[in-house]
Design a protein around this nucleic acid. Structure first.
Length: 268
DNA sequence: ACACTAACCTGCAAGC
DNA sequence: TGCTTGCAGGTTAGTG
């Protein structure tokens, strides 16, 4: 589930609760995630103090004096921080214990991943595109990078080598706000429309972060509570419902094996 | 180099 | 009440 806002919210929650805390015990219950979790991670993390947390794309980074823990939530992952002695829940795969708290990585579908890095470099993050909430995602970026792209614009903005963090929900929402048909070929869109799309991507992501993210099924903040952005979704999950702008019917189509929701009247 | 598909998993809801 | 089918916030490896 988690796209950039949900990952950012998780990272911020961890920062609040676990920054400067020392890991007292590491437990792996099921190492079979997207990639098998290396058992050596246990000794590498034990007794380490977490300096800070950061985020790159949809990866959460736990930064130590030396080294990093890198966690991706996949499709259904979440991280909760609970009091010690709370009973385990189904799909709790990875635990970090602290003095009086336990961090639990829970992921029913196991598309998430966990790696220990000696330095801040890994094939999964080294080639990522720009951060959509940073200055490098400037008004010309999408236009300039789309000139040789013959794929549809939705696939283009979801390509993490171009810009990170825009997943299926926020891609649909941003394109709706920008009035762009998701089927449009990326290199056919004008500079002005890309400037508009850029602004809408940033705004949608910022608003979602403010609302605590989008909870559909699995996602919760580290305190276990859901996010409320699902109440603000204009098109995602609203097939056959009325467009808030024109009262026309929201349509669902499949693009690149993913559902796309859009308003054919408002998005040309 | 680019673009698209299949695959990794579990759970839930809808339809029969 | 099953059983089957389709669908789900991601992303890589493989194919053409």
């Amino acid at each position: 589930m988690p796209e950039l806002p949900e990952v950012e919210i998780t990272k911020n929650g961890l920062e609040m609760l676990l920054s400067k805390k020392t890991i007292t015990k590491v437990q792996i219950f099921n190492p079979n995630l997207r990639w098998k979790v290396d058992q050596s991670i246990i000794s590498k993390l034990d007794n380490k103090t977490i300096d800070s947390f950061s985020r790159r794309g949809k990866y959460i980074l736990f930064n130590f004096d030396k080294g990093h823990l890198m966690i991706h939530l996949g499709m259904s992952g979440k991280i909760n921080v609970v009091d010690i002695n709370q009973p385990l829940e189904k799909h709790d795969h990875f635990l970090l214990h602290f003095d009086n708290k336990v961090m639990r990585f829970n992921d029913p579908r196991r598309f998430g991943s966990i790696f220990y890095l000696d330095r801040l470099s890994h094939e999964l993050i080294d080639k990522l595109g720009v951060e959509p909430l940073e200055d490098s995602f400037d008004k010309n970026y999408l236009f300039e990078n789309s000139r040789n792209k013959t794929q549809n614009v939705k696939a283009f903005i979801m390509d993490s080598k171009i810009v990170v963090g825009v997943g299926n929900i926020y891609a649909c929402e941003s394109l709706y706000k920008a009035g762009i048909n998701p089927k449009t070929i990326a290199n056919k869109i004008s500079k002005q429309r890309y400037i508009n799309l850029t602004n809408n991507i940033r705004e949608v992501l910022r608003k979602a972060i403010k609302a605590g993210g989008t909870t559909l099924q699995d996602f919760t903040k580290v305190d276990g509570k859901p996010g409320y952005f699902s109440q603000e979704l204009a098109v995602y999950g609203r097939e056959n419902e009325k467009c808030y702008n024109c009262n026309g019917k929201i349509k669902r189509i499949i693009q690149n094996q993913r559902s796309t929701f859009y308003c054919p009247k408002c998005q040309k």
